[in-house]
């Protein structure tokens, strides 16, 4: 029963995020997921050399100013690259990865407590749905949506 409730909440959250979040989702609309993970390989992102190629790919995939802002793209890139550490910081409500994300997302010091509280709640709900097959891009996308809803 509890799980059904959470599932319903997660679905509602996704709809709410799609309705509320301003602008495109960089993961789905700017091609950032595909650009960063051409073969779904984590190594492709963490390798310095391949990262250079990745950056080029991201740049070309997100050049269109009317679709993707620099800020959204930077937020998405940070989430996908730091996902686990960021998620752990979010669970704790504090940490250097979370602080960096809020800074990139231009969340002010006054907004921070409220945004973090909402973000914790949103991410916890979305995480329940993850299973062994959920990819890093999907997790990052869910986190991005949770953040946009919280801001």
């Amino acid at each position: 029963m509890n799980k059904k409730l959470l599932l319903a909440a997660a679905t509602a959250l996704t709809f709410a995020a799609n309705a509320n979040a301003e602008g495109p989702n960089p993961f789905s609309d700017c091609g950032i997921g595909a650009a960063l993970f051409p073969d779904n390989s984590t190594l492709a992102v963490t390798s310095n050399i391949i990262w250079d190629i990745g950056t080029t790919a991201v740049t070309s995939a997100t050049m269109s100013p009317e679709t993707c802002s620099v800020k959204e793209t930077e937020v998405a890139k940070f989430i996908i690259e730091s996902y686990d550490s960021l998620n752990e910081d979010t669970a704790r409500g504090e940490g250097q990865h979370l602080n960096a994300l809020l800074d990139i997302a231009e969340v002010s010091a006054e907004q921070k407590d409220e945004v973090v509280a909402k973000l914790r709640s949103n991410v916890a709900v979305s995480m329940v749905e993850f299973n062994a097959e959920t990819t890093k891009v999907e997790k990052s996308q869910a986190y991005y949506t949770a953040l946009m809803t919280a801001i």
Binding site: N87, E88, E94, G95, A124, A132
Partner: peptide, 28 residues
């Protein structure tokens, strides 16, 4: 092993993080 979906430690990791979410926020 993040690349192995069959590795149950992936599931336990997620559970541990979710338990942290269920506790009141507090820095390490």
């Amino acid at each position: 092993d993040k690349k192995d979906p069959e590795d149950k430690n992936n599931l336990y990791y997620k559970k541990a993080v979710l338990i942290r979410y269920q506790l009141a926020p507090s820095a390490s």
